[in-house]
Nucleic acid binder design. Sequence first.
RNA 1: GGAGGGUUCGCCUAGUGGCCGAUGGCGGCGGUCUUGAAAACCGCUAGGGCGGGGAACCGUCCUCGUGGGUUCGAAUCCCACACCCUCCGCCA
Length: 419
Amino acid sequence: MIDLRALREDPDRFRASQRARGESESLVDDLLAADQQRRAAVSRFEVLRAEQKQLGKRVAKAQGEERQLLLARTKELAQQVKAAELAGTQAEAALRAAQLAVSNLVEDGVVAGGEDDFVVLREVGERPDLREPRDHLELGELLGAIDTERGAKVSGARFYFLTGQGALLQLALLQLAVQQAVEVGFTPVIPPVLVRPETMEGTGFLGAHASEVYHLPADDLYLVGTSEVAMAGYHANEVLDLSGPKRYAGWSSCFRREAGSYGKDVRGIIRVHQFDKVEMFSYCRPEQAAEEHLRLLAWEEEMLAKVELPYRVIDIAAGDLGSSAARKYDCEAWLPSQGRYREVTSTSNCTTFQSRRLNIRYRDESGKPQMAATLNGTLATTRWIVAILENHQQPDGSVRVPKALQPLVGREVLEPVRR
RNA sequence: GGAGGGUUCGCCUAGUGGCCGAUGGCGGCGGUCUUGAAAACCGCUAGGGCGGGGAACCGUCCUCGUGGGUUCGAAUCCCACACCCUCCGCCA
């Protein structure tokens, strides 16, 4: 939900933002119109209501005939008040709808365009020199680490078992991520993965992403696609002390329907219905958000360095941001089997867009509550296993464990096993 | 699944139709007193929208779980729903 006051002051910024996203500029004008109408309707109601209150006080004091006279007048007024109130309520609803339709204001510096128009900020690390790289699934099967066949048998397509060394690797990876987060001051959190509709709604995932989300109709609960949902809802309707950023590292399983992705990444565990993730989540003051965003990115890169993956950082184009992000940086790890980079982290600055829906505030110097900014970023996920296996594979099918993971995995090399 | 209780301004609490945006206590903040502190006493202490002002502030409307209804008028009466809690059953 965008800032109406900012919109009134400078509608052209919002029009430009919509244009950069490839979204309709007229939504901005619809919103302005709805805002006007709501103001008019509300002030009409307020005038009538004030009058009604005044009269009511006189009725309370009046006696006999005078009272009867006043009652007659005030009855008539009550009808008008009711009508004006209804008009006001409708105008409010229309305004909200118009407000939800406009995406977040894009940060300055974000390039216009769509999915393929990102800007590469840097490439880091050395790509392995592999003559005939095995892909992660082949490696995973050799190692007895990934079992997609039984995943399909038990749960269907896009489900898998991580077994043996695979399970150890994931636990180690996520544990390393949590350790890093805790070292720099994050509060580790294991959140619920089922959330109420208003929480899902508040984080914006029931909009364009609605078909991506698992819903349990018997209980009207949603399975989170990321712990961002639970972590954003965590401080909903609260006024926070944000003298410094509040940082949480949420570890959860994530669930995604992957509707409409038939045929994409069907092999292996790149795109699955369930995976685990350690997610950073920050609440801070809006003026600190851009800086915090870069910090989250730096921590992501630190993790990638620890597991010794070659990657590049891209600055996502406006049209590919999603409605709540003002800016988004992805880190993409090199996948030898595909000869290209694939997303392994994503960090978004949602400015006050999410807070406005979830009513998350802080007190500024004058003690007034203001909307907080929210940011999130991936610290490690199941998908990283794909990149780790492929980049650290050796000709015999074994996989070297990155140094930082060795103590946590309990070995230096993952060895093929007999099946 | 069944039965009951509850939801009021940070916390607790009063409030059964108009003088209630709402009592009292705790906590917090400020002041008096004090070398300092405590105690005592005094004052302030929800949020939001709109309008005015440089600002402190002032005016006004909205908000007593949510939505509807009754009424000239609702925290208060009626209906529905949500959430929380307790007990019983069931499952682990």
